[in-house]
Amino acid sequence: MNVAQFGVLEKDLLDDFQRDFPLVPRPYRAIAERLGCDEDTVLELLCQMIKAGLITRIGPVFAPHRAGASTLAAVAVPEDRLESVAALVSGYDEVNHNYEREHRINLWFVVCAPAAERVAEVLRDIAARTGLEVLDLPLEQAFHIDLGFPLQWS
């Protein structure tokens, strides 16, 4: 399955159910009723989309600053060390996002732990092991509640 093969049903599933997934005993049947198909079709399509990697999961998206402690960290890594430093950073269980970005400060990652002390400890540890300065950019205020994402198929 790929996006080019998407019909109306696939698009509606993604457009209408990034939020407000029904909290009822048979949510997939409730979705099917809204889309005018049957429960098995909804389940089958969602399984296929997950298998094809087009959606990562069906489920809750948690607000990270409530479920434990977290921060966004950034490091300016010399180009020739980027691969090894990135691997070192990704090696921490507490790192759940790690992106390379085009900038002098080129490695960006999220550190997440049950308690703030452990987050600080991971940052210190990365700084000590790499000899590089780690910028700690914790969230101070969120201005947008992530309600999903308009995919604009056209």
Partner: peptide, 28 residues
């Protein structure tokens, strides 16, 4: 389970429940 998830939605601990798209795979 459902009641607790409703409450977590109301308090903001859960932002939303639904399909989580892989933007990259979808062409974004």
């Amino acid at each position: 389970v459902m009641r607790r998830m409703v409450r977590m939605l109301e308090t903001g601990a859960i932002r939303r429940i639904g399909a989580v798209p892989n933007h990259y795979a979808l062409g974004w």
